[in-house]
Design a protein around this nucleic acid. Structure first.
Lengths: 192, 192
DNA sequence: GAGCTTACGTGACCTACATCACATTCGTAT
DNA sequence: ATACGAATGTGATGTAGGTCACGTAAGCTC
């Protein structure tokens, strides 16, 4: 599906916009393509945009001590991603975003989002709901973290995104689950 | 400080409202008092309100298998709490909220929030930002969970809310950190 | 004040997972 | 096809934290 149409359908699930309104909104986005491995948001840099994924897959992740990586989010089509802390507070990025599989995205600048939100009440409403869904997803993941063991979380993840199994290297799945790649490997090769 | 004044200051940090507008907004809230131990949102019940804490302390928590409890949030003054999943999606509660220390709260119904949001653009803006802050806090906690050991998370929590140390029984702190009360006990009694 | 419940401390033991080390397989560029 | 780096499998070993068990102290309730 075309980028514009995908965004239109996505937004229309939350708010009603006329075609003219949507065209106006869409004019504030910019289509962008990334190759596998390309860096989109980089630790320590300024962050000016958020990204709506049209195709492919991105990851948002945090690096500790230059050594360990924790994945906050695999961004699949119709998901939004960025370093929202840096974006909203106009600080330097602490989160990285890069491209796992060749991707097409729609980028929206912080400035344009706030402009659209103030010009169109429905757009503000849309972003409130989108953020709310993100909040709920994050809360759910936190609970799953406290409550379930690694195996259960692994199965939960694959049940939710079966595509990940083939799309994403296993060590990245481990980094999402918050365990070492060795543990994950033993887990599904079932060495009891 | 009086409830009304506290809410006014809280909102004014994000958006400007005239006195008339604020009075109108405030007229949709209801002052409510709870005693220590009182249940506010209960697993399996309908959820119609969210709560702005004026004084005291609430906790939002999840129960597994009727046995284990995980605390999602200690709600201190100027914090909002509820089962937002159930509230926004109009489903039954899966989260509980109760009162840790005698509390005064302002309750706002889901209906009134949506009404205010659609009537006053600034109110919608306020709630978008509030939710965004919650999202960022949740993401930060998730990272801390993956990254830090129990001791570091314990110290992080107390650094952020020193009041908790005296206000809240230790086993609830443990339930927030996601460890057993025994582990927490050994931790700060420093049995190496 | 007696009795009960809730909070907390601490020892013994067990388990899930981390870490390190090394082998093997896969993917991509030449 | 060859070659090299990245991804993955797997063994050995260490450790944080869970679970169970029991004991003490501190609040409530009658």
């Amino acid at each position: 599906m075309e980028a514009k149409e995908l965004l239109k359908q996505h937004i229309s699930k939350t708010v009603r916009l006329t075609d003219e309104q949507f065209d106006y909104v869409f004019s504030h986005f910019k289509v962008q393509s990334y190759k596998k491995g390309q860096v989109i948001v980089s630790d320590g840099q300024k962050v000016d945009h958020e990204y709506f994924v049209v195709s492919g897959c991105l990851k948002a992740f945090y690096i500790t001590d230059e050594i360990k990586m924790y994945i906050l989010q695999f961004a699949m089509p119709t998901w939004w991603t960025s370093d929202y802390g840096a974006l909203y507070n106009q600080t330097r990025a602490t989160i990285n975003v890069d491209c796992i599989a060749d991707a097409e995205v729609l980028q929206l600048s912080n400035e344009n989002r706030e402009k659209l939100c103030s010009e169109l009440h429905q757009v503000e409403h849309f972003f409130r709901w989108r953020t709310n869904k993100g909040y709920l997803a994050s809360q759910k993941r936190l609970l799953s973290f406290m409550n379930n063991d690694t195996k259960a979380r692994y199965e939960e993840l694959l049940a939710m995104y079966p595509q990940l199994y083939n799309l994403v290297p296993k060590h990245l799945i481990a980094a999402y689950l918050g365990v070492s790649r060795e543990t994950l490997s033993r887990l599904y090769n079932n060495h009891k």
